[in-house]
Amino acid sequence: MIWAIGGGKGGTGKSFITSSMGTYLAQKGRKTILLDADLGGANLHTFFGLTRPRYSLTDFFDKKVALQDISVQSGIANLDLITGSIGSLDSESINHGQKQKLFRHIRALDADHIIIDLGAGTHINTLDTFLLADRMIVVTAPEVTALENMYHFIKSAYFRKLKFIFKAYDLTTSIQETWKNRATYDIHNLKDLIIHLKQSSDRVRDIFDREMSGFVVHIVLNQVRTPRDILVGENLKSVCMNFLGLPVVYAGYARFDEAVLKNINSKEPFMLSNRLSPVATEIKALAENIIAGTHISVRKDVANGSLS
């Protein structure tokens, strides 16, 4: 199963969540490979105390080494790492052919779980990698800027996906026509457009239902500090459906904990040295929710009090 972790904004904890979920899955005995696709600022290896990985994606792109062969051991049983390369490569410099080759190799990797840590931003290479995954995950934080970037990221991924579908089914022209005359049909946004298209033709409806049924984004809320913050994820389910027309699953949250920062700075895998931490429990819960595609259950009427 391929997991992709994006979210638009930097600093929300994508790499922390990636490394911790990976550690959890590996400890459960699942063969897991983490792939650092943050081609601009890759440092997933630092979470495992590796300073200079022997190989990186540069070797894959430049020296034509197979992807399977550039994975390095993380120091944790069942967990391997394919590292990006700091600075030497950015997503701008990968061409279409290289990208397709990378995707082919990712699909061919021998592992139970492949977790791809995407960089910040909404570059088309980032979006395409996101869409490649069986589990599309966004990590965000209860801050307005993080949520803005997250909405933008999800919408961009959705647009990208639609573009592929339009192209594959030769719908682009007719949809552009509809959009041009949107005032006539009382269409204001993407959601209206989709509803209109689905109503206008059974064929288009079937295509959308078939192709978009798998488009579900799993939300992970990181750096949660109050019970009100936990509710943000719950509210996002309603907001994304109502105003973006997109189904999202609230997979879970991880609270803010100074211990996480200390561990990152001392380059120790968090899940190994903090087995009893509530954060570790939360990571396990959200990983299981992502595998099963289930929601975390949050009581909507709990908004006061403190995290226990």
Binding site: P142, E148, Y151, N189, V232, N235, V239
Partner: peptide
């Protein structure tokens, strides 16, 4: 949720 100005609503900007 939708009459307030919580961050999850504020972040929607022009979408809301």
């Amino acid at each position: 949720l939708y009459s307030g100005d919580s961050i999850e609503i504020a972040a929607l900007n022009t979408d809301f």
